[in-house]
């Protein structure tokens, strides 16, 4: 049978899986919403969470879409669409696909036309990401118990412990921003963008205090993210003109 990574068969298979995961999100959404109601939580806070999460997601989701486009040259649309909508992340999928292609003697620089090579790549991408899917159901409860036992012994320390966990993650990704500094001025662009976005976040905080504009607080992260991304364009142009 003629192999085409963009054929209807591929689209149908992929759409089924994506629909399944979408359904899971809806089920969990409803479950959490009902629970919030049961607990007598402020419904306005729940609605704000939904609104600001949706707005915040737009820009990263478009970046993920770009990843689909990048991989589609070699793999067609359905497989990258699946891989980037469900589990995985940009860095993982691109690396896994490239590694698998190399291992079977192919390259992602051109369209994969051999179904055997294509399925080898699909297997590696699927198998390479299994730990999270296996370990959350197997260990999730134990990890939670560990955290709640820390909390029940000393609730203040429990909170500090979790803050330490967040800050560890944030530090690692902020450190990453400096990874290209050795390349000279152009390598500073991510640092400048990070600072621009940080300044926007502080400005949101100041506006909230000065005008008592509580609404801005809820949208401060999407505003700073989009603003930082937008400012990266003039920052890049400026730095490039300075390098000449």
């Amino acid at each position: 049978m003629e192999f085409n990574p963009n054929n209807t068969f591929m689209y149908v298979v992929v759409a089924l899986v994506i629909a399944f995961v979408l359904l899971q999100s809806v089920v969990f959404f409803i479950k959490a919403w009902r629970r919030g109601k049961e607990l007598g939580m402020d419904m306005k806070a729940l609605k704000k969470t939904v609104g600001s999460s949706a707005l915040f997601t737009v820009a990263p989701a478009i970046a993920i879409l770009l990843g689909v486009i990048a991989l589609s040259n070699a793999l067609g649309f359905p497989l990258p669409w699946l891989r980037l909508s469900v589990i995985g992340s940009l860095t993982y999928e691109a690396t896994a696909a490239a590694a698998a292609a190399t291992a079977v003697g192919a390259s992602l620089s051109q369209r994969i036309t051999d179904p055997k090579i294509f399925s080898a790549i699909a297997w590696v991408m699927a198998l390479g990401i299994i730990p999270g899917l296996l370990l959350v159901p197997l260990l999730g409860k134990k990890i939670e118990k560990g955290i709640s036992s820390i909390k029940s012994k000393d609730s203040k320390w429990g909170q500090i412990f979790l803050s330490g966990l967040f800050l560890g993650m944030i530090s690692a990704f902020l450190g990453l921003v400096f990874a290209r500094v050795q390349e000279g001025l152009a390598g500073w662009i991510p640092v400048f963008v990070m600072l621009a976005s940080a300044v926007l976040m502080m400005t949101c905080g100041l506006i909230r205090k000065a005008f008592n504009a509580k609404w801005i607080e809820d949208y401060a992260l999407p505003i700073s993210l989009l603003g930082g991304m937008a400012l990266s364009i003039p920052i890049t142009t400026l730095v490039q003109s300075m390098i000449g």
């Binding site: 944030i170 662009i189 963008v193 990070m194 976005s197 940080a198 976040m201 401060a220 930082g228 991304m229």
Partner: peptide, 12 residues
């Protein structure tokens, strides 16, 4: 520059 823009704001 999506990661620097994201973590810059989150960092603050």
């Amino acid at each position: 520059n999506i990661l620097p823009a994201l973590f810059g704001a989150l960092g603050v």
